[in-house]
Design a protein around this nucleic acid. Structure first.
Lengths: 115, 115
DNA sequence: AGAAAAGGCAACAAAAAGGTTGCAGTATTC
DNA sequence: GAATACTGCAACCTTTTTGTTGCCTTTTCT
């Protein structure tokens, strides 16, 4: 598990970075917090309660959409955004890998010190 | 669970965004992947195998350090960076919250449809 | 002591991010 | 059909990010 595993891990990483980046902003994190509540919302609805303009919110939503965190569907005159759990599920798994690797390292160190 | 939980969630969110942002870059994700292996590394070591200059890597390391994801200690002529699991543990918890909220929403929807 | 290695600092430049404003295009509603 | 809502597009501006280069300081090794 060295030669082959590596490129796939790197590939996954390249895939995950945009998701982390999408979540790396207060405004977008707020939007996600609202949308993961289940109810699809229009841009106007999502703009309410924010000090930003509708356009700014739209841009943030497009960033989230590019990362796959949300998904939009046009319905009549409004476009509804809904949460998509997949990408976040994937980065959670990735973070679990990172944590696991760290825990292993700690365990090795402990074993080493105790002997 | 509505009026009070909210502000604390928002506060936590403000705290998490920089961590997500720090992870939202391929180069930094690679650095984290190396450092979570347990062994502290110097800037020069971390620069090896990258096409970027030492300065660029240094900047990325400072970003990670500001987010608390890594921690540096000067040792002689080199400064060693080590991984810190705390911030990543926190955002994992946060993502669990998001997922849980989504799952609840799905459950509610299902119950509603079935009745 | 002198050469080599590891870093820090600062100035720059190019590119991306975050926001705003203004205007045009569709749906809805009365 | 006219007014109203909800968006999309594009131009622009400012601030951050990302990366480079050059030079100087501190350690280490011989």
């Amino acid at each position: 598990m060295s030669g082959k595993g590596r490129s796939s891990v790197a590939a996954r990483r390249r895939h995950h970075a945009p998701v982390f980046a999408a979540l790396g902003d207060d405004t977008r994190l707020s939007l996600v917090a609202v949308l993961c509540g289940g109810q699809p919302r229009s841009i106007s609805q999502l703009t309410e309660g924010s000090r930003l303009t509708r356009q700014a919110i739209t841009k943030h939503l497009r960033v989230l959409e590019s990362a796959g965190v949300v998904h939009s569907v046009r319905s009549g005159r409004e476009s509804l955004f809904r949460f998509d759990p997949e990408p976040i599920g994937e980065i959670k798994e990735y973070l679990d890998l990172v944590s696991a690797q760290w825990d292993e390292a700690l365990a090795r160190l402990k074993r080493f010190v105790e002997n």
